[in-house]
Design a protein around this nucleic acid. Structure first.
Length: 601
RNA sequence: GCCGAUGUAGCUCAAUGGCAGAGCAGCUGUUUUGUAAACAGCAGGUUGUCGGUUCGAGCCCGACCGUCGGCUCCA
């Protein structure tokens, strides 16, 4: 979004956004007072708060925030009115030039209007379209959150400014509730839970962005893979294995070397002169499988799937836990079909996404139609006809499905537009999980063909699609979505048997054997600890079922069932427990136990 | 990659430029326990790495590596 668009957006501010926007001005006022010589860029309201970008004589540190906040409170207490006026362009240009505000000058130079909006509160005057609250006293509870760097106009070739983030609410209670939400988000962070539950690790000695899946995380991953492969097989996908390396030439043909080189590891040169690269995508490999033999229209669609491992050279500052890594395995597939089949195949993939999200219990997701940026000649394939054709096809499919979606300009793949399914992670940041891409480009580049009914060679269409995203990102999202409380079918340990005293060890092992025989994942906590400690540890590990066994249970062939929701079900015959748990496991239910609602889990 | 912060025991954290500590986890022993932490003892560290300043560096300075928050990019 351009700065000018952002300024325009402010016109549509809701009351709380207006108040936050005003808070941004008050923050700028405070900074101007405390840091003479500050140059200001833009300061919009954002979700939950506001920021202001500025250039300051020295870097801000977190220790500066209280003083700025305090100065803001003074301004709020003074209840300065926000005074709006319209200035002729030239006057505004002159004013900001004189005051050494080059960013404001640049904004005005890009504004077409003869007059520009000016707001002033107390000593602070700013270029602004508004609207604002009537006076600073209407600004409620404010807190500055963090200072960060941000490129001027979001362009990495332009100066880096300091961005000061704050949040503002009508009341202190709302502010406190928001801060509590942030705390909760930190508790759910997959990096923390992944460590606490021994799901994965990242070792400095292995390398940044190269996660290791620990036994428990690997168990969850394998279950997810089993699930998705099963569903795909039922829908006619054929699974393959292909190597993670390929000749550089392959990626020159595909266009990756031209458009995607920044994300690729440098080629490895062999003694023979041959150059190999770690693959950043799987499509060229699957294309070779398509090309393995002559294809008839009768063979299509051909759906080639793979849990394909690939490597992308992400910049160091972009890495984040499991959600942004350098080695990743994509739940990938490529559908090769006739142009006539494309729509039906596309719709089939969307249905698969929807079915999968239902199983996982995802409810908050949105569809993004990711289009090219026509002005970006480097990132995107230059083929006007191809882009128009594929975009039209995508829109037609979306209309037919009746999906509501928003558009993301510049979010397309280099070879074609896509439908991305966006979820918000625990920190509210949008991430792509599923993606479905229409591709007329690679079939052309690799000269793909099938023989049609007419005996002539025709060009197939490719659909690239990922349902579970990469296993890494999906795991990150799942952990946060469930806060580590995996549904029974995904829990790495489904039940812990807790013998009360050493003499119950024999029976505990019998119980575990019965669960094992039923295909349930069970551990016996045979430590010389008090039962309370064992219960606590199992709770902390978020194990769905705790099976306490003592004299009573051993005599009656039962288990005393405690759920991780803290609910104590009491004695249940062992056979009944095994039957019930097996049923919930096999059906991939998100219910913990029949009497307990899923929402409470 | 850029801006800023940050890095001490497996984990969470202490320690004015002057002998590197605690809780939990681990190990050993005692305890044999009824639904979220029994008790005692022991062990655990070239303070991310390399260099510098200093009589002396966990602490100050520089470079590098990692992590965190953003920016850019993105599955």
């Amino acid at each position: 979004m351009s700065v000018e668009e952002e300024l325009n957006l402010s016109v549509a501010y809701t009351p709380i956004q207006r108040m936050r926007h005003s808070a941004a001005h008050v923050m700028a006022e405070a900074v101007q007072d405390l840091f003479p010589g500050a140059r200001f860029a833009i300061g919009p309201a954002i979700e939950d708060g506001f920021y202001y970008d500025m250039e300051l004589p020295r870097p801000l540190t977190p220790d500066d925030l209280p003083a700025i906040e305090e100065r803001m409170r003074q301004s709020i207490a003074a209840n300065h009115p926000f005074v709006q006026s319209k200035w002729p362009r030239e006057k505004a240009l002159e004013y900001f030039k004189q005051r050494d505000q080059p960013y404001k000058v640049e904004i005005i130079e890009n504004l077409p209007d003869a007059e520009v909006g000016i707001y002033q509160q107390g000593p602070f005057l700013d270029l602004c379209r508004g609207p604002h609250v009537a006076s600073t006293g209407e600004i409620g509870a404010v807190k500055l959150l963090r200072v960060a760097g941000a490129y001027w106009r979001g362009d990495e070739h332009r100066p880096m400014l300091q961005r000061l983030y704050g949040t503002a609410w009508f009341t202190q209670e709302e502010l406190d509730a928001y801060l509590e939400r942030l705390e909760e988000a930190r508790r759910r962070d997959h990096r923390k839970i992944g460590k606490d539950l021994d799901l994965f690790m990242i070792s400095d000695e292995i390398g940044a962005g190269l996660p290791l899946w620990l036994p428990k995380g690997a168990t969850v991953r394998r279950l997810l893979e089993d699930y998705i492969v099963g569903v795909e097989r039922a829908q006619g996908y054929q699974h393959v294995y292909t190597p993670n390396l390929a000749k550089l030439d392959l990626y020159k043909t595909s266009g990756h070397w031209e458009h995607y080189q920044d994300s690729m590891y440098p080629p490895m040169e062999m003694e023979s002169g041959e150059e190999l690269v770690l693959r950043p995508m799987n499509c060229p490999h699957h294309i070779q499988i398509y090309k393995q033999k002559m294809r008839s229209y009768r063979d299509l669609p051909i759906r080639i799937a793979e849990l394909g491992t690939m490597y992308r050279l992400e910049k160091s500052g972009e890495l984040a836990g499991l959600s942004r890594v350098r080695a990743m395995t994509l739940n990938d597939a490529h559908i090769f079909c006739t142009p006539e089949q494309m729509l039906g195949e596309f719709i089939g993939v969307v249905r698969l996404v929807q079915e999968t999200y239902k199983v996982m219990g995802f409810e908050n997701y949105s569809y993004r139609l990711s289009l090219r940026d026509p002005n970006d000649k480097v990132k995107f394939e230059q083929n006007e006809e191809m882009w128009q054709r594929s975009e039209a096809a995508l829109r037609q499919a979306l209309d037919q499905l009746g999906l509501s979606y928003y558009e993301g300009i510049g979010d397309a793949a280099f070879y074609g537009p896509k439908l991305d399914v966006q979820v918000a992670n625990v920190l509210g940041k949008d991430e792509t999980i599923s993606t479905i891409q229409l591709d007329f480009t690679l079939p052309e580049k690799f000269n793909l063909e099938y023989i049609g009914e007419d005996g002539q060679a025709h060009r197939p269409v490719m659909i690239h699609r990922g349902i579970l995203s990469t296993m890494e990102r999906f795991m990150a999202f799942l952990i946060e979505n469930y806060a580590g409380n995996f549904p029974v079918w995904l829990a790495p340990v489904q039940a812990v048997v807790i013998p009360i005293a050493d003499r119950h060890a024999g029976y505990a092992n019998q119980v575990a054997a019965a669960l094992n025989a039923a295909g349930l994942r069970v551990e016996v906590d045979g430590r010389s600890e008090r039962m309370n400690a064992k219960v606590r540890d199992a709770q902390m590990q978020k194990v769905p079922y705790m099976l306490v066994v003592g004299d009573k249970e051993a005599e009656s062939n039962a288990v005393s069932l405690r759920l991780r929701t803290n609910e104590n079900i009491g004695a249940v015959p062992l056979a009944d427990f095994v039957a019930q748990a097996s049923q919930l496991n096999a059906s991939r239910s998100r219910d913990l136990w029949p009497s307990v609602a899923a929402s409470a889990q």
